[in-house]
Design a binder for these strands. Structure first.
Ligand code: ZN
Length: 629
DNA sequence: CGCATTTGACCAGCGC
DNA sequence: GCGCTGGTCAAATGCG
């Protein structure tokens, strides 16, 4: 049941709603710009967060800053999922199971419960249960000490009895204590889980941003060099991204009439019910891909063969006519897929969105079924996702996203959505600009920079161009590389496990960096047939590697391309800096020029504790866990 | 009773 | 054309 996921307020566990919003999320998805409403029925109450979201929506162009939401990308607590009642093929999780699941944070609730945690679990103990336990505990203690001593002095005959009682009490106390410990333990585990997920999301975000920037940068260069159009003009990379986003916004505004209700009548965009053909719902009659300059990589699927606008998606952003282009771009975007591999025993990762399951299939080479979901946060939202367990390692959950949301998202969903969205865009851009339709070597080389165990894979071989973000922590990344099909690139993303909160050992992956680089570069040259970027050669890689290990942030200043490199540096900082906070600060600072260090600092200590997972669809996936476990 | 999930059927694309 | 496969639909089912 998608009911209330992400948006509803969980009264019970609200103390556990934690998130740290490092900054406003990047608006990478196309949102309708509706000024008047708070979109739809999802009881999005007006609160601080809501306000800023709307503000952002209202502006024609996305905010000039990059925002880094880090949210509870947590899975449902797996403990619950194991023993789902295994009747039938697809057992459903009982409601109880769902309840025990950590709560998904709620960004829109009115009360103070949404506020980012400023104190850690200490505060959490204030929640009813724990508090109760504590009370009981202390009360018993007092009782025991007082009464026992008194009684023993007064009467010996009763003393044995009292002794008995005493031990009983102590036992009870211990039991309570034990329970409390267990609860605490569980909570800590959840925290850790969420932390990991947050970290992963952040990584993904960084990487995709980097890639985005790189790609956009390249596109821009190409435009300047090839087209020389006065119209397109030179735009700073950062701006470029924003504009692109803005156009996406326009597009959506056009297609989906100011969201709010499912009733959106117009919207050619939501012709999704087309079994007849292109499943993409934005595919209009002429879905020619705009950017076919070099390769026409994506034109193949379109009905109208050619049109070849000279310019790729550089189009004039302001003009209303750009909506056409935006449409086309989006249609293509819809086809691009972003796949996220994450290690999770939970049936589905919580990405902050509401999903409704609409199908399940047995995939071919996989004993685990593949589940199909569509976004239900807005009526016409074209976003789909597929969830499937990895055949080899069933603890790995592969979630494949497709399409862009046409509605505002809560910050929780923003992280994943923007990541996937930008990843998709990057993929498309890369494919259009690279020689063989795979990706731009330049940007590849750049993204290779910071690294460690996580990987991003880009593959255009599939029917759909796909970016795979691998968040699984593999002890040996190289092994992963070897296992991969040759036509995919692997981009190290960053250290995987939450590093930095003291308890996570630093991955040894850093030591493997040079090898990863080597491998990735090898792949790159092998399949793209490309050279390395001008400012990036193996030697330099090694150098940079060293650098980022010691003092990552220094990198930014050293390189020419400040934007991309600063992002790289930021990622590197994350990789190198044991302090997550500092890493985040470095990331954002380097991207935005030190915009809001304070807010970061304020939020950084907030560890999400238990979060509520929503969700909806979780039970349908119970089958997965049952089959897998 | 409304809604989400389940699940068999249907459809399109692709390879043979 | 046929079979296979991935993806989607929608009636049936189940749940709250
Ligand atoms: Zn959506």
């Amino acid at each position: 049941m998608a009911k209330g996921s992400g948006l509803s307020i969980d009264q019970n566990n609200n103390s556990d709603h934690h998130f740290f919003l490092l900054h406003k999320p990047t608006v990478l998805n196309s949102f309708p710009e509706d000024h008047h409403h708070h979109h739809n029925n999802h009881n999005i109450s007006s609160s601080g967060s809501d306000t800023w979201i709307n503000n952002k929506m209202d502006s024609k162009t996305p905010p000039p800053t990059i925002q880094f939401p880090v949210y509870n990308f947590n899975h449902r607590s797996h403990d619950d999922d194991h023993h789902n009642h295994g009747h039938r093929d697809s057992p459903q999780l009982s409601d109880d199971d769902k309840r025990t699941v950590v709560d998904e944070m709620d960004f829109f609730s009115n009360g103070g419960d949404v506020k980012p945690i400023t104190t850690n679990k200490n505060n959490d103990s204030g929640e009813p249960t724990t508090g109760l336990e504590l009370n009981i505990n202390t009360g018993l203690n007092l009782l025991i000490t007082n009464t026992s001593s008194d009684q023993s002095m007064v009467d010996d005959g009763i003393s044995t009895n009292m002794e008995n009682k005493k031990t009983k009490n102590e036992f009870a106390v211990l039991q309570v204590e034990l329970d409390r410990m267990n609860a605490e333990n569980q909570r800590l585990r959840n925290m850790l889980n969420e932390l990991t997920n947050n970290y992963n999301i952040l990584q993904m975000h960084l990487v995709t941003l980097k890639q985005d920037q790189k790609v956009e940068n390249n596109n821009e260069e190409r435009v300047v060099l090839e087209d020389k159009k006065p119209n397109g003009g030179f735009v700073a990379p950062r701006q470029f991204i924003d504009l692109g986003l803005a156009s996406a916004n326009n597009n959506n505004n056009n297609t989906v009439d100011t969201s709010d209700e499912p009733s959106l009548s117009s919207s050619e965009g939501r012709s999704s019910r087309d079994r007849t053909g292109s499943p993409g719902n934005n595919n209009e009659d002429n879905t020619t891909v705009v950017f076919d300059q070099d390769k026409k990589e994506f034109v193949r699927r379109e009905d109208s063969p050619d049109q070849g606008y000279g310019a790729n998606k550089v189009p004039k952003f302001n003009s209303s006519s750009s909506s056409k282009n935006a449409d086309q771009t989006e249609a293509t975007m819809r086809k691009a897929r972003v796949s996220v591999r994450a290690r999770s025993e939970a049936p589905m990762i919580n990405d902050g969105c509401q999903w409704r399951k609409y199908g399940q299939k047995m995939a071919k080479g996989n004993p685990c079924p593949r589940a199909y979901y569509r976004c239900t946060m807005a009526a016409g939202c074209p976003v789909r996702k597929q969830v499937q367990r990895c055949a080899e390692d069933k603890t790995i959950l592969i979630t494949t996203y497709e399409g862009n949301h046409n509605h505002p998202l809560p910050p929780a969903a923003m992280a994943m959505a923007s990541t996937t969205s930008s990843a998709a865009r990057l993929l498309l851009s890369g494919s259009m600009s690279s020689a063989d339709g795979l990706m731009n070597p330049n940007f590849l080389a750049r993204t290779l920079l910071p690294c460690s165990s996580s990987m991003a894979t880009i593959s255009a071989s599939a029917p759909f161009p796909t970016v795979t973000l691998d968040l699984t922590q593999t002890p040996n990344p190289l092994q992963q590389l070897v296992q991969r099909p040759p036509n995919q690139f692997h981009i190290p993303l960053g250290p995987n496990p939450p590093h930095g909160f003291g308890n996570a050992p630093a991955p040894a992956a850093t030591s493997l960096l040079p090898q990863i680089f080597g491998q990735a570069l090898y792949n790159q040259s092998k399949f793209s047939g490309l050279q390395m970027s001008q400012d990036m050669d193996p030697a330099q890689l090694g150098h940079l590697h060293h650098h980022h290990q010691s003092q990552a942030t220094h990198q930014a200043g050293q390189n020419n391309n400040s934007l991309a490199d600063s992002v790289s540096a930021a990622t590197a900082a994350i990789a190198a800096d044991p302090n997550f906070t500092a890493a985040l600060a470095a990331a954002i600072t380097s991207i935005m020029g030190g915009a809001h260090p304070n807010s970061i600092a304020n939020n950084n200590t907030n560890l999400p504790t238990t979060t509520n997972t929503t969700t909806s669809n979780s039970n349908s996936n119970g089958k997965f866990s049952s089959e897998l476990n």
